[in-house]
């Protein structure tokens, strides 16, 4: 392919859109973070670094950052492990397996609002689905999962695994299908058992897939909003007040536009740093196995 200018024409519409609706807003958000403004008045007053100072001193902001970290640390690895296990389960030549694959995907295409309302119901004490089943087994069925300070976060994580199962399964499945059978045959010749060839062949070959799932899941987890908005509003006692929801409240409920912008920018910085670290670590792994 020779270098030319025509390529710019092809990417122009998408690039224009990207600049207008992603890059410019981000820069504008940085600009706003230096002002005090409540959206209703027309003038905004310059506030220097005061919004950042406020953000760094605000315990509720750090509580939210911590909650998001906790959510990501729980939901991402658990979701990935479950996704991989299910992918292995459905990577078998069984009659009707496509039906199951399709079935497992349904939660992922469902409406986030509908699912959140549904899961409020599932988590209800006594009458909720989980507690009803516990009641049938004569186990304590009075737990109010979403109102319990130590359980609410786990309730959200559990739901996220349920919702995200389908896509992760399909991703890992495609990774599994892509592994050349010759590798397994070679491992077998070397006398490796099932578990060993899983460890030595399957996992290393899945690293590119894992990388993709890890980065997208982490970004997704750090930005979780709808379930919190519908199910817990950050409660009980701010135990599920994740940073996406916290910033939403600052901006759209308290109308502290400057402070919300400063906090968004801090969040963005954190996401970028995490992505770079993940990228570095996995890239090294990737290169290590690139010979296979």
């Amino acid at each position: 392919m020779k270098k030319g200018r025509l390529g710019y024409l092809f990417i122009a519409p998408a690039t224009f859109h990207l600049v207008v609706f992603a890059i410019f807003p981000m820069l504008f958000s940085v600009y706003l973070s230096f002002f005090k403004w409540n959206l209703l008045t027309s003038e905004r007053s310059f506030n220097g670094l005061a919004n950042y100072a406020y953000a760094f001193r605000d315990p509720q902001f750090w509580n939210a950052m911590w909650n998001s970290t906790k959510y990501a640390l729980l939901s991402v690895p658990l979701g990935m492990i479950v996704g991989l296990l299910v992918a292995i389960l459905v990577n078998q030549k069984l009659r009707g397996i496509t039906l199951f694959r399709t079935l497992f995907y349904i939660p992922a295409i469902s409406s986030g609002v509908a699912l959140s309302i549904l899961w409020i119901y599932i988590y209800m004490p006594e009458t909720g689905l989980i507690n009803s089943v516990l009641g049938l087994l004569h186990i304590n069925n009075k737990t109010d999962f979403l109102k319990n300070e130590s359980l609410a976060m786990f309730a959200l994580v559990f739901m996220s695994i349920w919702v995200g199962l389908g896509p992760r399964m399909v991703l890992f499945l495609s990774g599994l299908i892509g592994i050349p059978p010759s590798l397994y045959e070679a491992a077998e010749l070397d006398g490796a058992g099932k578990l060993r060839s899983f460890w030595n062949v399957t996992l290393p070959m899945l690293i590119p897939t894992t990388f993709f799932v890890l980065i997208t899941s982490t970004i997704g987890a750090l930005q979780i909003f709808t379930p919190v908005y519908i199910m817990t509003q950050g409660g009980p006692n701010e135990k599920t007040d994740v940073v996406g929801y916290h910033i939403y409240v600052e901006a759209w409920s308290k109308f502290l536009i400057g402070i919300a912008s400063a906090k968004s920018f801090v969040l963005l910085a954190v996401i970028v740093i995490i992505s770079i670290i993940q990228f570095r670590v996995l890239k090294n792994q990737l290169e290590g196995y690139s010979t296979t």
């Binding site: 209800m124 004490p125 006594e126 009458t127 909720g128 009075k142 109010d144 109102k147």
Partner: peptide, 9 residues
Amino acid sequence: DLSQTAATG
């Protein structure tokens, strides 16, 4: 209890 009330709907 508040959650008891919520449970009845």
